[in-house]
Design a protein around this nucleic acid. Structure first.
Length: 164
DNA sequence: TTGTGTTTTACGACCTC
DNA sequence: GAGGTCGTAAAACACAA
């Protein structure tokens, strides 16, 4: 009876308390205490359920974080490789400038940031008028050799930075 | 049988309406 | 003042060793 009454209404007004006590042959005070304890159990159960939900969400968030960290690692590795390739191509380009210019031709000239090993800056045609004078330093020129176009990853990289 | 953990009952202190 | 929550003690109960 107490359970049924509790399911109907969690709070216990005087009339219902007295009625229940009479029906059960209990002291009204006992009925009141029973309701107090029943409410406490109910609240505790709700808290447990909420905790379980939060824990599930937390676990999912941790898993997602791990995936993101793996992705960051993978992209960092990719960046290192790209920078190595850039260094290689720059080196090849410089040799071409100082050499006979045979199978290597200038494709683009990009302004680069001193603090960065590559640039997303604007491109200009080699030797194209002005401003910078006619001296072409290491950080000013980027020569893309023909063979670079055969490597899809290089093409991808250069496209990414608007160099092709 | 006994030690231990869990549940239930009851109470006091304090708060709100 | 009645009735609420919160924290806690004690009794009752369940159960493995």
């Amino acid at each position: 009876m107490l359970e049924l009454s509790f399911r109907e209404e969690r709070k216990l007004e005087t009339g219902r308390k007295v009625h229940l006590a009479a029906e059960l042959g209990l002291d009204p005070k006992q009925v009141a205490v029973w309701f107090q304890n029943r409410r406490a159990r109910h609240k505790s159960k709700l808290l447990e359920e909420e905790f379980a939900k939060l824990k599930q969400a937390h676990d999912a968030a941790i898993l997602h974080k791990c995936h993101l960290e793996n992705e960051v690692m993978r992209l960092k590795d990719k960046l290192v490789l790209a920078e190595e390739e850039l260094t290689r191509f720059r080196s090849a380009g410089n040799h071409a400038v100082s050499g006979d210019g045979g199978d290597v031709m200038a494709r683009a000239v990009c302004s680069g940031s001193p603090s960065s090993s590559f640039s997303t800056g604007t491109c200009q045609q080699p030797g194209g008028g002005g401003g910078g004078g006619d001296h072409l330093g290491d950080d000013d020129l980027l020569y893309v050799p023909d063979y670079a176009y055969a490597d899809s990853s290089v093409v991808e990289w250069f496209s990414l930075y608007g160099l092709m």
